[in-house]
Design a protein around this nucleic acid. Structure first.
Ligand SMILES: [Zn+2]
Ligand SMILES: [Zn+2]
Ligand SMILES: [Zn+2]
Ligand SMILES: [Zn+2]
Lengths: 134, 134
DNA sequence: TGCCAGACGTTATAGCGTAACACAACGGCC
DNA sequence: GGCCGTTGTGTTACGCTATAACGTCTGGCA
């Protein structure tokens, strides 16, 4: 088992991300935790660094924000994870993308490229906003 | 045909990106064009905005940098483009990812998500650096 | 000629992320 | 318990990334 004990700061940042319904920027997290004694961005970034390493949190490169992992229990090992980000409501859905992962792995094998980290992010409209936006 | 006439600033920024062997940040572009009269970030960002809209330039979200398109003639219409970024030498390869595109399109169709823009970026080691790094 | 959309120049400001330093807390080990 | 390396913390300061807001200028077209 991988029962990791988080420190106070790490736990606070993680809780903030889990409580949020949308991704949060590091500075938004900072503001939400000022009541808990947070004063500087580094406190947030250091906690995020650990949470990212543990796989409990993901970074959304295209919007410079962070989300709690939707399914932190099972490692998303070699089946890459992807994100669908709604440009209207900000909602994010995390999903596995095995077909995409396979295609990219094939290309990498042919090109001799050794991937260390893969980013797949879709920006667009979620079903609800797509219906509402008519 | 889509022979677009670029303005002076747009042309200078595009030339700077084409001349570079690696992606450039907006501020690096600014520094390289100071001799041409560039003084403020906005001059670069405005030119980039247009070049991105024209599809002549791509933005690499994971490293906040920009590259000239490798094959600007044929639109990469519905076959998504992906990037392999070497963490050691900074080299970037742009490639089409039809299998990944299909997989993501399938998921989006099932989830009711309408993608507007898709980001696929692999960070890792290129063949040369992988061999050298032993 | 008059108009207008788009590009341009400038200043200022907002947002994202890290360097550097010193100190405290934890845990293994003897 | 006392030692010591590792990890986390708090704070200040700084650098990089991106946009807001304003006014001006140009080029194309009725
Ligand atoms: Zn996850
Ligand atoms: Zn939505
Ligand atoms: Zn391209
Ligand atoms: Zn390389």
């Amino acid at each position: 088992m991988s029962e990791v004990k988080l420190t106070r700061n790490q736990g606070l940042v993680f809780d903030a991300l889990q409580a949020a319904e949308a991704p949060l920027s590091a500075y938004t997290i900072l503001d939400r935790l000022r009541g808990e004694g947070f004063r500087a961005p580094l406190q947030v970034y250091r906690a995020l660094e650990k949470l990212l390493a543990l796989g409990l949190v993901h970074r959304l490169e295209s919007i410079n924000a962070f989300v709690a992992c939707s399914h932190p229990h099972h490692d998303h090992g070699e089946s890459l994870v992807a994100f669908a980000i709604c440009q209207t409501c900000g909602d994010v859905r995390e999903f596995a993308a095995p077909a995409a992962a396979a295609g990219l792995r094939d290309w990498a094998a042919g090109a001799g490229f050794k991937p260390a980290k893969t980013t797949i992010e879709l920006s667009g409209l979620c079903r609800a906003c797509s219906a509402a936006g008519a």
